[in-house]
Amino acid sequence: MEISLTDYLDEIDGKILTENVNPEKIFVNDGYVSDLLSDVMGNAKAGQVWITIMRHLNVIAVASLTNLSAIVFAKNMIPEPTVISKANEEGICLISSPLSAFVLAGKLYKKLNL
């Protein structure tokens, strides 16, 4: 099953950090939870939402490399402005949510009817 990122945002009280990226045009069919860049580099796949607490600039590089178009920062984590502007450039939607990675993943799992 595939859903629009907007549908997921409503579930997680998600705040969009990247104003130039339209979440309505992003569709997701899976998720990936990880706080290690090397792990994401080797295993994440296009169509997944990446749920993490990492905020380094290389997060954006790794997302571009693996064709991820949405990253949710758990526990209200917000990256530096330079990270957000890089994501805007790359067309990657950054979302900050007050929920924990566990709850974020659970809600996505349910929404996708997995």
Binding site: M41, G42, N58, A61, V62, L65
Partner: peptide
């Protein structure tokens, strides 16, 4: 090192 080629446009 984990085997991955550098991709200069990203890194």
């Amino acid at each position: 090192l984990l085997p991955r080629k550098n991709e200069p446009e990203f890194f």
